[in-house]
């Protein structure tokens, strides 16, 4: 039972962090760069692990942030220097990084406890078994403080949340109107890479739980649902988190019922919630179109 709670708690934090960051990706129309970073972060994780032989959180975060920023920067440079459309340059960079990541995993399969499977799904069901133990394990004098993945995403969630609270107004201006922000003297490029850093950290911390690709669903889908209904940025952030938490609960139930992957089921539920929202809005607007005749 405690295991279920750890799984749900970890999934909830993953979903919430992704939803918060995703809001800005959607508003800044950078959903695709979010997709790209979530793929290339795999390479960052693998390289960080191969170089340092450690899975400590700061190292994983560092590797992912470096690769994430590199992805954003290279895509942009390729767009400028190679004169390619920006989505094409994004596509070229992230597929390459991801491919190298997968190759390294299969080359050093014996040395990394990562396999192609968990790159795709994550292993949220195993999250409770990889715990952090404080103190001496043999002497049983320490105590178990819970799963590593939980604390990882917990720290990242705190960073994401506090960044958004502190720089709420800046982020709002930049998302709403980049050229106005620039004319007000705000360093738009800095904030762009700041956001990319948050995306990289979120995806790497979510990696254990949901893998490299399903995280895209959590980044993009709850934020899009919120975008459809929210009327202020604050509301959109709250709603995105709300949608994501609902998706976690429904997804967990779905996975339990079908005996399917928990992470995939959460992503599917997020999508279903989006489609329900869209359907509801379509019905509403049709009804509104019919009504004016009576009200006039």
């Amino acid at each position: 039972m405690t295991n279920d709670i750890w799984i749900i708690a970890t999934a909830a934090l993953v979903a919430a962090s992704c939803a918060l960051v995703g809001v800005f990706l959607i508003l800044r129309r950078q959903a695709l760069i979010g997709d790209a970073i979530s793929h290339s972060v795999l390479l960052g994780i693998v390289l960080a692990y191969l170089i340092t032989d450690s899975r400590a959180l700061p190292i994983m975060l560092g590797g992912a942030v470096i690769i994430g920023l590199l992805t954003a920067w290279l895509s942009d440079s390729l767009h400028r220097v190679g004169k390619l459309q920006s989505d094409a340059s994004i596509g070229i960079i992230f597929t390459l990084f991801f491919a190298i990541g997968v190759i390294l995993i299969s080359l050093y399969a014996g040395q990394i406890d990562l396999d192609q499977e968990c790159v795709l799904y994550g292993e949220i069901a195993f999250v409770p078994f990889d715990t952090i133990y404080i103190g001496n394990l043999a002497a049983e004098s320490g105590f178990d403080i819970g799963p590593r993945a939980f604390w990882g995403i917990g720290i990242v969630f705190t960073i994401v949340l506090s960044s958004i609270i502190i720089s709420f107004n800046r982020l709002k201006t930049i998302a709403f109107h980049p050229s106005l922000a620039l004319s007000l003297g705000i360093n738009v490029i800095f904030w762009h890479y700041f956001l990319m850093t948050l995306v990289s950290m979120t995806t790497v911390a979510s990696f254990d739980a949901v893998g490299a690709i399903l995280v895209v669903a959590l980044l993009v889908i709850p934020a899009s649902s919120a975008y459809l209904v929210a009327r202020s940025l604050k509301a959109m952030l709250w709603m995105a988190v709300g949608y994501s938490q609902l998706a976690v609960l429904i997804g967990y139930a779905l996975a339990f019922w079908l005996d399917s992957s928990i992470s995939a089921s959460i992503a599917v539920s997020a999508g279903l919630l989006l489609f329900v929202t869209i359907a509801w809005q379509q019905v509403q607007s049709q009804r509104r179109q019919r009504q004016p005749i009576d009200s006039l």
Partner: peptide
């Protein structure tokens, strides 16, 4: 963009 009129105008004060 999910934002209301007053918030847009307040952006003018962000500088």
């Amino acid at each position: 963009f999910p934002i209301n009129v007053l918030d847009v105008v307040l952006m003018g004060r962000h500088g």
